[in-house]
């Protein structure tokens, strides 16, 4: 994840997409017990990873199967980042890695050696709220609060994407200066599900911050 922001070219994207389809076509091997026999009671080999989390260097020695999400929640005990689905469906685990938002559940921690990770705890605290957090409170952009850290991380990243001119699926004129229209906002935030249905209020919060 050391790639500079938004340098993925269309060609690379097509290559990546083709690789994905190969994986889909590979036969499913099934659970390990189908192969028969009892696996040896061997300890899992551990790996050390060092990241900068919310501005502080953090080193953890991990089972390499540990997702970035579980590393944050279970090992660093930064439980602000939420696990809603563990499948990249819901967006509750959205964090910023080197300034780009990702689903932390879809990424293994060991892929992030040297990366800068920002979680909701690094965005603001109850005593020093980020303007986006304050706007979410003001506009009641949440109810149960479980998707909220992901929504806020995404919202902060969306404003940066607009600033950098990163287009989206609904951008009508790629040559025109990028602006945060309501359809742009809703498209870009659609990876973050809110089952309480606070979308209308979240849009109001983000719009206010964007206009500030």
């Amino acid at each position: 994840m050391n790639t500079p922001d938004w340098e993925l070219s269309r060609r690379e994207f097509v290559v990546g997409a083709a690789a994905s389809s190969v994986i889909v076509a590979t036969p499913f091997l099934g659970p390990a017990h189908a192969a028969g026999g009892t696996p040896p009671h061997a300890a899992v080999p551990m790996m050390k990873v060092t990241m900068e989390v919310n501005g502080s260097p953090r080193s953890v020695t991990l089972d390499p199967r540990t997702s970035l999400l579980d590393t944050l929640r279970e090992h660093l005990r930064l439980t602000g980042t939420k696990k809603g689905c563990d499948h990249g469906h819901c967006g509750a685990c959205t964090v910023l890695v080197n300034g780009t938002r990702i689903n932390a559940c879809l990424s293994l921690a060991v892929m992030h050696e040297g990366d800068k990770v920002t979680t909701v705890e690094g965005i603001g605290t109850p005593d020093a709220l980020h303007p986006m957090q304050a706007a979410f409170i003001k506009h009641d952009g949440f109810q149960c609060g479980y998707c909220t850290p992901g929504q806020i991380c995404s919202a902060v990243a969306v404003l940066k994407e607009i600033e950098k001119g990163v287009p989206s699926h609904v951008t009508e004129d790629l040559a025109a200066p990028m602006r945060l229209s309501n359809p742009e906002l809703r498209e870009r935030m659609s990876g973050n599900i809110c089952r309480c249905g606070a979308y209308s209020n979240i849009a109001a919060a983000i719009t206010e911050v964007a206009g500030a």
């Binding site: 979680t119 705890e121 709220l129 609060g145």
Partner: peptide, 10 residues
């Protein structure tokens, strides 16, 4: 409880 929820501290 808003400040807790928006900062991931709830």
């Amino acid at each position: 409880d808003g400040p807790l929820k928006v900062t991931g501290t709830a």
